[in-house]
């Protein structure tokens, strides 16, 4: 019963809150739809924290998503032990980068009074959760190797079952506690997205890759339309 609540109901609720809330906030409060950069106020730790964090967590997230969406390809990528080791070490490097990065970000927020000034309570919650999430991710990676392999046969079918509305929590309910915490925190963070600065994830400016550089707008003609 608890398992159904945690691994079926909660993920659906979290996804619904995350998606609906994010779209709602986007439509109603564009102005706040960013992360609040504090690079102007503190730039020494920010460089190390932010680059290590983002360069670590972005590929990690993409790899997780790829594991959910294209498990066959991901399985083929580590079909022999040697390739598995390579994938694992690469993943662990990214994970440690993210952990060190988020640790630095947490540290600078704690010690710099200027950065603390621009920190909201939600920022603390999100930052702490992210730190915990990455920490547990690394506990799984190091304590329960080889995640690259079992991920595709535990978390992936579970996520697939959720996506096809045929929930099968049994894929994950027998896993150790650390796994469960990692899974649940992931959904919790997703649910927190519309209530925090995490919305900046969907503002990634892809269109800059092709937009023309100079923008000239006729406000009058636009208004007349």
């Amino acid at each position: 019963m608890l398992n159904v609540l945690l691994f079926v109901v909660f993920p659906y609720v979290a996804l619904a809150i995350g998606i609906v809330g994010t779209i709602y906030r986007y439509l109603t409060n564009q102005y706040s739809f960013t992360s609040l950069s504090s690079q102007l106020l503190e730039n020494d730790w920010q460089f190390w924290g932010s680059t290590l964090w983002h360069y670590g967590i972005l590929p990690t997230t993409v790899i997780h998503l790829a594991g959910f969406t294209v498990p066959k390809i991901m399985a083929a990528l580590h079909s022999t032990p040697e390739m598995l080791y390579l994938a694992e070490v690469a993943g662990k490097i990214l994970g440690i980068m993210a952990l060190v990065g988020v640790g630095i970000l947490l540290y600078r927020r704690l010690v710099s009074s200027k950065v603390r000034t621009v920190t909201s309570p939600v920022d603390w919650i999100v930052l702490a959760l992210l730190f915990g999430q990455v920490l547990f991710g690394l506990i799984l990676a190091f304590g329960y190797r080889w995640g690259a392999a079992w991920f595709l046969h535990t978390a992936t079918p579970w996520m697939a079952s959720l996506a096809t509305f045929q929930p099968a929590p049994q894929y994950v309910t027998a896993l150790p506690l650390a796994h469960k915490i990692h899974f649940l925190t992931g959904f919790l963070l997703f649910a927190l997205m519309p209530f925090s600065r995490l919305v900046h994830i969907v503002t990634f400016p892809t269109s800059y890759a092709w937009r023309r550089l100079q923008l000239v707008i006729w406000t009058r003609r636009k208004a007349a339309q």
């Binding site: 032990p81 080791y85 329960y144 190797r145 080889w146 995640g147 392999a149 150790p176």
Partner: peptide, 10 residues
């Protein structure tokens, strides 16, 4: 002794 880095531990 399987593989240079061993087998899994889950």
């Amino acid at each position: 002794d399987n593989g240079i880095l061993g087998g899994g531990a889950l």
